[in-house]
Design a protein around this nucleic acid. Structure first.
Lengths: 174, 174
DNA sequence: CGAGTGAGTTCCTAATTGGAACTCACATCT
DNA sequence: AGATGTGAGTTCCAATTAGGAACTCACTCG
């Protein structure tokens, strides 16, 4: 299986990674959440090549994570703004920050601190259950097949991801 | 800047991505959270090449995300188990699942449903503030320099990431 | 003894990155 | 008018990485 095909599998993790799983993409998003919007600023802050930056911004626009907004005419210039779909990636970026703060900090401590505006506290966000309010972690959650996967389960052979069958585009699992 | 150098920057997102930001790594972790532990099972479920799988498992072990545990002697065989550090990546994998369920589901609906064992509800976890219990999102959190970054801020020139200076390994930002 | 297993390795080809320079459409300065 | 500057890409080539398929190793089993 090639990396470019992972978005076609029946797996939400893989589908998400098909949009934001390439090198540099999540760092571009980190910058976007820090209010960077223009090509040259992304380039200067991140140090990736302009070539790759162009490619990443284009797919992010194609996928609806950014929208390209004109901010001046003559010469026409555009900036990249997070859409609602893009803003909803925040928990992922926070998750990366939280883990880095907790496990990768050197002796100088964490590079960034997160402050919750509503209460003013410095904190590390935690996942919670919107139904009961309790904490959510690896040990108290069960992943069950959802509707899309149950539809495929009838003739599953155990492979969670499979290449597209030659003609029938529906033949992949999880 | 080369991708391999991002772990040396003063940024928690970049440091985390230096461990789990390569192609396939997060899918390997998804599998691990679904209780896959052996080489051939990862290979069969994911369809990546054995070559890349070997490389990814090795860095994950080096970084302390997996530990290699012997499960039989003669011939000696090992399996890969998530450590505490690895289990703590769960919020990231859940974040990816949640976004995929919400934004990438086709008309068949979500591939997976998450059930909270403590209350029995199917749910999409949300980030909350451990201090006040309120919701955490892109609009109500402020990222401030933490101790490690404040130490560097005295002579910052605006670049958030910078290559290591030729000899002085401390000269990078964010 | 021959076949099977689990976990890698090797080798070679195909993609994807990294670096650096070049282009284009204007705006401004001298 | 001509020179210089800006923001946002493009192009080209060398260096890394990934994809495929076959091969190896140390044993176990029938």
């Amino acid at each position: 299986m090639r990396w470019r095909e992972i978005g076609e599998t029946t797996c939400s993790v893989a589908r998400t990674l098909s949009v934001i799983g390439d090198r540099w993409t999540l760092l571009i998003l980190r910058e976007a959440f820090l209010r960077t919007r223009r090509f040259d600023d992304f380039h200067a802050h991140l140090g990736l090549t302009r070539h790759v930056l162009t490619a990443r911004l284009n797919t992010l626009v194609d996928e609806g994570v950014f929208e390209k907004v004109r901010y001046q005419d003559r010469p026409p210039r555009f900036e990249y703004r997070l859409t609602e779909k893009g803003l909803d990636l925040y928990p992922i970026v926070i998750g990366l920050t939280r883990w880095g703060d907790r496990w990768m900090a050197g002796e100088d401590g964490a590079p960034v601190e997160l402050v919750h505006r509503e209460c003013g506290h410095t904190m590390l966000p935690e996942l919670g259950c919107p139904e009961c309010g309790g904490p959510v972690n690896a040990r108290n959650v069960e992943a069950r097949p959802g509707p899309a996967l149950r539809a495929l389960l009838t003739n599953d052979d155990g492979a969670r991801m499979r290449r597209a069958a030659p003609r029938d585009d529906k033949e992949k699992t999880r």
